[in-house]
């Protein structure tokens, strides 16, 4: 069983705040709690306790935020801008290297895995 929020499947017995955080790119725990407070959901509410109007309210709140594809596109564009301007950060992104001055002698594996242009496939 799953509950569908913003086109995503969320586990039915998870906390609403936790489910939002896990399912939607761009929503962390703090943002999820803020959304719940705005919609008027109590902190320990679970996904399967949501009513239809509450799900619609959640969808409305989430759709007004920059999440998922929009957010990924923005991140890609920002990185691309750095690359286009020829900045050092753009160079590091393009070469799968850490961007913020970290060493690469023994670490830098996360950057190797993630840093590429475009960063996210949409």
């Amino acid at each position: 069983m799953a509950v569908h929020i913003f086109g995503k499947h969320v586990k039915h017995n998870s906390l609403v705040s936790h489910g939002l955080k896990k399912a939607i790119f761009g929503i962390g725990y703090h943002t999820a709690e803020r959304i719940c407070a705005k919609v008027g959901l109590y902190p320990q509410m679970r996904m399967n306790q949501l009513s239809e109007p509450q799900i619609m309210d959640l969808n409305k709140e989430v759709s007004e935020m920059m999440v998922e594809g929009q957010l990924k596109q923005k991140i890609n564009n920002d990185i691309q801008l750095k690359r286009d301007t020829g900045s050092y950060a753009g160079y590091r992104h393009a070469n799968s290297l850490p961007v913020r001055g970290q060493g690469t002698r023994s670490n830098g594996q996360t950057a190797k895995r993630l840093n590429k242009i475009p960063r996210y496939k949409i």
């Binding site: 709690e33 803020r34 719940c36 407070a37 705005k38 008027g40 109590y42 902190p43």
Partner: peptide
């Protein structure tokens, strides 16, 4: 409490 106003 752990409850929040709409303004968090």
């Amino acid at each position: 409490t752990k409850y929040h106003h709409p303004d968090f």
